[in-house]
Write a protein that binds this DNA or RNA. Structure first.
Lengths: 205, 205
DNA sequence: CATTAATGATACTGTACAGTACGGTACGGT
DNA sequence: ACCGTACCGTACTGTACAGTATCATTAATG
């Protein structure tokens, strides 16, 4: 099983170990010897699989993207009332980000974006873009059903507006090492207020 | 004038040159020799001023913070009607971020946050926190005047909600190298829709 | 001016690390 | 049993760079 199974396992092991290390210490903070010290094996194989340190990095980002997709794909908003759909989406997104790995993935993608543009783009498509997409299709349904104002632009932009308002400050504080993102449940006032503001606005009456 | 003026000028020149380079190529992408090649002078002086590369980095971040503060401090919202205050704040924030330097400063702060926590914190206090603070005091006034709903939490959080909804997606796309932040004027539909949604909500009627 | 402190030019040290070379070893196919 | 391919271990090369040391030069102070 050298080309079909053993090799795959080895490759996966390397990518997995490298993911952990890159997320922990950043691209420059990890040497290839560090990776090999975890996986065993030698540089020859590593280079035969990935060609370069950058090649390994790309593979790592793809892996991270795959995993990032999982928790949000399960989300089913179809036919929920607006308040509940928003709440559920908000809670889900915040809970994804409460995993330190998610924040470190952001940091890694942002740090290396100038040197690895394709990886950064892949990350954007896979991670932050997905949540907004799901909510957007939901909002489009509601808009088509006449439950929402039609004068406020594309559903995609509105979806972004809501999610971003929830996420931005917490994510920035986490990225800058000021405070971790905490887990929230459906009753959290932070989420509740954002949903309410988004639904009915800030102005009285 | 060695300690009082000449030295200060030299010090400033080094910090300035280093700012440019760090913002351009990141902390690891710049060697001290690169900096000295721009400023002239020698390592002796550099080390006598900053002690280490990290010391220089801290000085650079402080300088960046100082400059980041300038354009928003001029903003005067007092006694403006809500729609206009929001619009003006939104346009200002987006225009600050449309300067590539601002985005690169974010990237630098985020990248180095694990290794330079105090610098990252200083950046947060100086840059993103200021805009929200200004809008928050304005919103507190309006809330006190009874023009806003009082059941939606702290003004500070509401201010963040608005600014973040506007900023997050554009900033992320810029940080990930997908699209630059564009300048906007007061009539831009992007800003107008966000203001309207924030004021009156998404639900029809 | 002379003295002293600050600055300059430059060479050196030590280290970390990406990438290569190469001889040896397990293992699958035939 | 034999061969070839993929893998291992490890040593080596070249380079980049933070930080130090040395000595020459310039500028402030009295």
């Amino acid at each position: 099983m050298p080309k079909t199974e053993r090799a795959q396992q080895k490759r996966d092991a390397i990518v997995k170990a490298a993911s952990v290390l890159f997320l922990e210490r950043g691209f420059n903070g990890v040497s290839l010897d560090d990776v090999l010290q975890v996986t065993g094996g030698s540089k020859s194989t590593l280079y035969s699989y990935f060609g370069s340190k950058d090649g390994l990095f790309e593979a790592v980002i793809l892996r991270i993207c795959d995993e990032a997709l999982i928790p949000l794909r399960a989300l089913e908003l179809h036919h929920l009332p607006l308040r509940e759909a928003l709440t559920r989406m908000g809670v889900s997104v915040l809970n994804v980000l409460s995993e330190p790995v998610a924040v470190e993935a952001y940091r890694l993608a942002i740090s290396e974006a100038p040197r690895h543009p394709e990886a950064a783009r892949a990350y954007y498509e896979a991670a932050p873009n997905v949540a907004a997409g799901i909510l957007a299709t939901y909002l489009a349904e509601r808009q088509a059903a006449g439950e929402l104002r039609g004068d406020l632009g594309e559903p995609r932009r509105l979806a972004s507006l809501f999610i971003d308002s929830l996420v931005h400050n917490l994510l920035m504080k986490a990225l800058l090492g000021i405070a971790p993102v905490l887990r929230r449940d459906e009753d959290d006032p932070f989420v509740r207020d954002a949903v309410e503001a988004f639904m009915h606005g800030l102005v009285r009456g």
